[in-house]
């Protein structure tokens, strides 16, 4: 195991930020920590990194207890913090070199690593720019370069795409996958479920300081009753027909508004066919038809009773 966290408890006065928090990260995976704002993701990361005191629990990285003095462990960890942590007085190259120099003392090797990091995040044209001249997206990329230049085995990214334009977001997500392919284990926290779904090989969903579900994307979706969401465009739908739809096999819920019939069903075969057949027997003309698999939001909704999106 790369990271093992057991029964972690962290309190801020009366508020329990982490409530018997447990999780494990395996070598070579992209582990996603998904949860709404305030769910305790950053607190968990800061505890794991020994920045924050905690009340109870154990944290091990590569099988060794993590502490502020665990320099051997720290040497193998790359951190990209939620708040951009670069120096305004240093340009792009100097910022990366400064942070890289805390890990790599050999100047020649460091120069090479810094250049590679600059290329990796696509800041070659901006290497002499000072941070205040960079856009939000480029600044985030610089923040990432500062965290990965020393080629760490474990990279922890805490909400690296907050307030980032789509182009930079794609660049960042592709970069994370490349780092993983090159051998790094990734811990990725985010409240954007689409990002987590896209890049993470395993996901833990957090709420109120607790892990409420862990697994792969498919495993998480397999934990809930919702199978798919069917959206059918119809001009008019009487109440009796809507009740009939709700009575179809596997249907969990059916709603009609804005000329859209939205049906959520449990896992099962031919749900769409059964729905369309029923509408045909009632002489209902249909327009566009969509079928969507369940999302992590559905998982969050079913487990917690609230929308993940509502919490953002």
């Amino acid at each position: 195991m790369v990271i093992t966290v057991k029964n972690l408890v962290k309190r801020y006065d009366d508020l329990i930020a982490l409530d018997h928090f447990n999780f494990e990260v395996k070598e070579g995976e992209i582990f996603g920590l998904l949860g709404p704002n305030g769910s305790g993701k950053t607190t968990a990361i800061n505890c794991i990194l020994s920045l924050l005191k905690y009340d109870k629990g154990t944290i091990e990285i590569y099988g060794k207890p993590m502490s502020p003095d665990a320099y051997d462990l720290k040497r193998n960890i790359g951190i990209i913090m939620q708040n951009v942590a670069v120096f305004e007085e240093l340009n792009v190259y100097e910022n990366i070199d400064y942070f890289c120099g805390m890990y790599i003392t050999d100047k020649k090797l460091r120069r090479q690593l810094v250049e590679e990091a600059i290329d990796f995040v696509g800041l070659r044209d901006f290497r002499k720019f000072y941070p205040k001249k960079l856009s939000g997206g480029l600044l985030r990329r610089l923040n990432i370069a500062c965290g990965i230049a020393h080629k760490p085995k474990l990279i922890i990214l805490d909400e690296p795409t907050v307030a980032v334009d789509p182009q930079s977001r794609n660049n960042i997500l592709e970069g994370i996958q490349r780092l993983n392919k090159e051998g790094a284990t990734i811990v990725y926290t985010s409240h954007y479920m689409e990002e987590v779904e896209e890049i993470c090989t395993r996901i833990a969903i957090m709420d109120k300081g607790r892990i409420i579900a862990t697994g792969t994307n498919d495993e998480l979706k397999g934990m809930i009753n919702s199978g798919e969401k069917l959206t059918v465009e119809v001009l008019k739908l009487e109440h009796g027909i809507l009740e009939g739809v709700r009575g179809l096999p596997n249907v969990v819920s059916a709603e009609f508004y804005d000329n859209l019939l939205i049906v959520k069903s449990t896992k099962g075969k031919n749900n769409l066919v059964a729905l369309l057949d029923y509408l045909k027997t009632k002489n209902i003309s249909v327009g566009k038809i969509y079928s969507e698999p369940p999302t992590l939001n559905d998982v969050f909704l079913e487990i917690t009773g609230k929308e993940l999106r509502d919490q953002l």
Partner: peptide, 20 residues
Amino acid sequence: TAIQANQSPQGARISLAPAH
């Protein structure tokens, strides 16, 4: 301010480096 983790993001970042 630059090296204290509770005073700046830079301080927090530096505190995570393997440096005394």
